[in-house]
Amino acid sequence: MTRRRFWIPHPGHLEGLQQLLAGLEDVLDEVEAVYTGSSPSHVGTGRPNLNEPERENLEEQVETAHSHGVMFDVVVNTTCPLGGKPTRRVLDGFQGYLERLEKMGVDGVIVADPWLLRVASDVFDRVVVSCLAFVNSPEKAEFFSDHASAVTLDTNVNRNLDVIKAISKVIDVKLIVNEGCLKDCPFRPFHFNLFSHMYGPDRTTLYDDYYYRRCMLERVKNPELIIKSPWVRPEDLHWYDKLVSGFKIGGRSYEIGWIIRAVCAYVRGEYRSNLLDILDCPRELRDHFYVDNRGLEGAMEHWAKRCTGLCHECGFCKDLARKVVRVIEPAGASPG
């Protein structure tokens, strides 16, 4: 069997990393690297960033990861690096930040913006294109292949093995497996742009998050969208073993205990409960819905061989949702 390599999330604090590595001791041989968000004082990222990695002894964290034989990557995948500021000033700040990361021993960076990727490639050999660059074809992968060492696929093509195979001929491919976002999400670029500002130097605040509310609303009304989300079950990784060089597990904003559960499920290739427990999706969704992972056995066969993406003409996911998705009774609702 092909040896799988996993790329796992790290919330960014030293105690968390120590707890994470200890909790994953039995499976660390399969872990290629941890990744964490960049410092919001320097550059934004596509996910909520709950700490300041530099303030949190980043150098010591890198040493800790290395002492366990695990690489340490930093995500700098802002989708709006300029933010209205002069290019030269942003460039100087970004270069300086990357050089400090490199001196601390950071192994690589994950970048979405093509300009920042070009700059990063002067500092790091290991530069991975973020899923927020939306690489969904070999032609698009070509644009990045001169300066990147790998691409993280646009998750919308996760179940299209022909496209993945074609991209893998151009460049190394990383696949996000526990994707919990909507397939063909209309909010995705805008939502991540919002995150890039909220968790970057702009420190933008907002009263509420329209994209998040709509994302939840759509799925509560149409649970079939949960099935259409381009996740890959732990049991189905074998479909990708010859196509991708690494499996990325999303969830760097979650608690350590959650991350350990999700990583163990994917490394062991098995999860016997609510699939939403290990997907990188809003917590509220898994509190509300139960998706029986056992009931999804065989679905990948359909997606890999027969899915056209023309959902209105098919109905497979809709039928499957009726069988495997149920609403969970609130915990406190039972008498006694």
């Binding site: 604090h13 707890q19 350590i256 959650w258």
Partner: peptide, 18 residues
């Protein structure tokens, strides 16, 4: 804590902000 959150809320700092 519920059973699942007991598992997730382990350690002194389950998340950087907690």
């Amino acid at each position: 804590l519920c059973e699942r959150c007991s598992e997730e809320f382990s350690g002194d700092r389950p998340r950087p902000d907690l």
